[in-house]
Design a protein around this nucleic acid. Structure first.
Lengths: 174, 174
DNA sequence: CACCGTAGGCTAACAACGTTAGCCGCGCAA
DNA sequence: TTGCGCGGCTAACGTTGTTAGCCTACGGTG
């Protein structure tokens, strides 16, 4: 399932800006957000750091575009899906495939005004479809996110969450 | 319920270091972690920034001590408690009372070697007591954390999670 | 053809950040 | 008295995000 075109965040970017964004993705996933420096990103592109500001107003604006990209891709990666178990499984997998992007997209503040209107809702709608109820959807999403982010941050004693813990979650919401 | 003395992270600190830590708490809750600067913290104490390094080896070491403090206090704030509903309620309240400290303590990497051994387990044990099963405990904790952190970061459309969403969570795990 | 705006680079520089080096004064114990 | 350690200080470094100002190539328009 692919994202409706009017929600595609890349749509409004100039071609060169898309290349910058793509490079930022690579560096992000390789180094993490805090280690992604305007200079290191510029190096990746073979240009000087200040040149980046021809394409993005600030590092934070770049972050917002990366988040928008993530919402699109995660939304696509989790759709189509039927049933809570499959949704949770897909959510988990898509996060594990791009851990740094996931963390960036789901942690800290979010500049909603800079996002294509409707993208955030579209990205989360599979949870609504799987549960049939808005509050159940929110609760399931929060639970799945909690599992993923704690696992990403190595907060479980075993390092990653045991399969049985995931099963527990699915059981309660299934 | 109070934390066993041998788990108290403040125990090993010099008196002056405790004052620095207390000031850091104030500044953290007021400004947030990224805006807490070695210089701003020093200002709060009326000293110069480099002097802080007489008490903590780095900003990250300071962060670790704040996290240890948080584990202790959150563990205390949530105990004694009986039943899933009451635990979730207490968890939510204690996080809402110190949002910045909560975010700091539960996000990003954790230097376990610098924590009093057993503190992390002790802090999480109420979930084990309330559920009676390790995996259920982990799942419930992850779900509660997901709710709290998404709410703190303003990720719910309504700003904060509706009461009904919390009820949903409690219902499924109750 | 001459013109000019725009896209996209560049260097130099700034302020703020975490951090280090090196120095100094006080108080207490041998 | 001497020494030492605790807890301050200033000066400075490298790195960060960011700004200012300049230059070049190119694509359309008079």
């Amino acid at each position: 399932m692919t994202c409706p075109e009017e929600l595609d965040p890349v749509r409004l970017l100039t071609p060169r800006a898309r290349e910058v964004l793509a490079a930022a993705r690579v560096v992000l996933e390789r180094d993490g957000w805090d280690t992604l420096t305007m200079r290191s990103l510029a190096d990746e592109l073979g240009i000087a750091a200040p040149s980046l500001y021809k394409h993005f107003a600030s590092k934070d604006a770049l972050r917002t575009q990366l988040i928008a990209l993530a919402l699109k891709e995660f939304g696509e990666g989790v759709r189509p899906v039927s049933g809570v178990a499959a949704l949770v499984r897909a959510y988990r997998d898509v996060a594990a495939a791009h851990p740094q992007l996931y963390r960036l997209a789901t942690s800290g503040s979010l500049d909603r005004d800079a996002l294509p209107p409707g993208l955030e809702d579209w990205s989360g709608s599979p949870f609504l479809e799987a549960t049939g109820d808005p509050h159940r959807a929110q609760a399931l999403w929060a639970a799945a996110h909690g599992m993923v982010i704690l696992e990403l941050d190595g907060r479980f004693p075993t390092g990653s969450a045991p399969e049985a813990t995931w099963d527990e979650l699915v059981t309660h919401f299934g």
